[in-house]
């Protein structure tokens, strides 16, 4: 609560964070250095990790097969550690479009995409995308033709999901690195396509 003369007071929950952390440090459960190291490590994890996987799968059919068979092993093959993550990669095809959600909490392939955007954790997305996926995708500007089936993946337990988007047309002569540059976070959640633009 704000008192006179106090600058940017801690919220109740920030106060709880500081207090919890200091108690855990005093008890030798964690150290400040460990906490900072993990927080910093997470900051460096962003969607470019997932994009690297997708671009490899687009350019190397054998890798794609391994990725679809065992997502975790295929990530480790590229030197990407995915701790505590059993990754299932689901492939978009001309017939099927995949989209990911966690209706019960906010499970997300964070080791490949970083921390999730707020909308992914919102009541609106979690409630609606399982029941009216086409309407929700339309709100992202993504129109899925009627003849394409939509497959929703609810991450309810120990698996995490990553969408392998369709490779855009007219990118046949692109390098793997250039391809990785067009693989967006949203395309790997399944709410948008990857675009060559």
């Amino acid at each position: 609560m704000s008192e006179l003369g106090k600058y940017a007071p801690l919220t109740y929950f920030q106060l709880m964070e500081v207090s919890l952390r200091e108690l855990l440090v005093e008890k030798g459960v964690v150290s400040d250095a460990e906490v900072d190291a993990v927080a910093t490590d997470m900051k460096t994890r962003g969607p470019e990790r997932g994009a690297k996987v997708v671009a490899r799968a687009w350019t190397d059919p054998a890798y794609k097969q391994r990725l679809l068979a065992d997502g975790t092993a295929a990530c480790e093959e590229l030197g990407l550690d995915v701790p505590a993550l059993r990754l299932v990669v689901v492939e978009n095809t001309p017939e099927v479009h995949n989209v990911i959600v966690c209706t019960l909490c906010s499970c997300y392939p964070r080791m490949l995409l970083g921390l999730p955007p707020d909308w992914y954790k919102s009541r609106e997305y979690r409630s609606r995308v399982v029941r009216e996926p086409r309407a929700v995708l339309a709100e992202f500007g993504t129109a899925i033709p009627d003849e394409v089936a939509i497959r929703v993946h609810d991450s309810t337990a120990d698996m995490r999901y990553l969408v392998l988007p369709l490779r855009p047309a007219d990118t046949e002569d692109w390098s793997e690195q250039r391809l990785a540059g067009i693989v967006t976070r949203d395309s790997m959640i399944g709410v948008a396509p990857a675009k060559a633009a």
Partner: peptide, 15 residues
């Protein structure tokens, strides 16, 4: 009341 294609599916992890 699902308003989408007959081929639309949902996958859920269940113990």
């Amino acid at each position: 009341d699902y308003r989408g294609g007959r081929a639309d599916t949902i996958e859920v992890e269940i113990f």
